[in-house]
């Protein structure tokens, strides 16, 4: 199978959030229905971040355009980037997270043990978990964008892409998506959007979500140089082999000690507290005399 990718063109996005709704609908992810259940944060970005039942949000950012009137109103897309070198897959201790045949990072919820290491490892801070407020953690299960493998397997596009009315989202062969993105960026440059760029082509060894950023990256809640944290690699690539090695070395060392101790015998001793003599019980011989006057103990 050729690698597939989602293309998000921020210059075409109208911020309608239909993709958010489609994601929730297709994946049966409810939203709170109580009045004013979402805290007002002064932005159209709602909910303000990904959550246990929200795999995708459109971000809203108003940047200074350097002119007297108007703003650079940037619509971004915050969801799984489906990295090739995916920190979440590397760190997942149960094999729950994996790459599917199209290169998308998906998961088997049955295998999730709720450790949330994926969230702490992800440079984009994407994975979220249902039941994460459960203090014992028994009901914690990952919930993040999967790229709708059930739809893709039947020749359909992910739910968010299908519903995108202004055509900001597309889905297809990764190389094709990159080519479209680069062509679009070239056009944006011609139109005077100097900071326009493609994002996701090379990041994390290539993401399977390709962005066309109309404005500067600082307006999109995206890291400039996403990397797997050193401590993540240290844990998985250093500490585990080192622990195995340490375990084997200690066992081997102690086995040698054990063998050297076989057949060990010592005579029974007693202490004469009046004469301050340590005596061999079997022979009656004084092994050691403690000279108290000389300060011996």
């Amino acid at each position: 199978m050729t690698e597939q990718a989602i293309l998000f063109d921020s210059s075409r996005c109208s911020g309608c959030k239909a993709c958010q709704v489609a994601c929730k609908t297709w994946n049966s992810l409810p939203s709170p229905l109580e009045k004013n259940s979402q805290e007002w944060n002064g932005s159209l970005q709602c909910p303000p971040d990904l959550g246990s039942n929200t795999r995708l949000i459109i971000t809203f950012n108003e940047g200074d355009n350097g002119k007297k009137y108007g703003v650079n109103w940037a619509f971004g897309r915050r969801s799984c980037m489906h990295c090739t070198n995916a920190a979440c897959v590397n760190v997942c201790p149960s094999g729950c997270l994996y790459h599917d045949e199209y290169g998308m990072v998906t998961y088997d919820a049955e295998k999730c043990i709720g450790c949330q290491y994926c969230r702490s490892a992800c440079p984009f801070d994407v994975p979220r978990h249902k039941g994460s407020d459960d203090i014992l953690g028994g009901s914690v299960v990952i919930n993040k964008c999967t790229g709708c493998p059930d739809r893709v397997a039947h020749g359909r596009k992910p739910a968010c892409v299908t519903t995108c009315q202004p055509g900001a989202l597309d889905f297809g062969d990764r190389d094709d998506m990159i080519a479209i993105a680069e062509e679009r960026v070239a056009l944006l440059h011609k139109k005077g959007f100097d900071k326009a760029r493609v994002y996701g082509k090379d990041e994390m060894d290539g993401c399977h979500v390709i962005y066309v950023l109309k404005y500067g990256i600082e307006q999109y809640e995206l890291p400039e140089n996403p990397k797997i944290m050193g401590s993540v690699n240290a844990s998985s690539k250093v500490m585990k082999p080192l622990t195995a090695l340490g375990f084997v070395a200690v066992i081997a060392g102690l086995a040698v000690c054990y063998i050297s101790g076989i057949g060990y015998h010592r005579d029974t001793m007693r202490y004469d507290e009046k004469k301050h003599d340590v005596i061999d019980v079997d022979t009656g011989e004084v092994i050691k005399h403690i000279d108290k006057e000389a300060g011996e103990r």
Partner: peptide
């Protein structure tokens, strides 16, 4: 940090490294 306080990913990653490192020493 993941159930009550929701600390940052960096804090969790460092604590995980500490947990692993001292597990190694503890085992020995």
């Amino acid at each position: 940090g993941i159930s009550v306080f929701h600390v940052s990913a960096g804090v969790l990653a460092v604590q995980r490294f500490i947990h692993d490192l001292f597990f190694l020493i503890l085992v020995i």
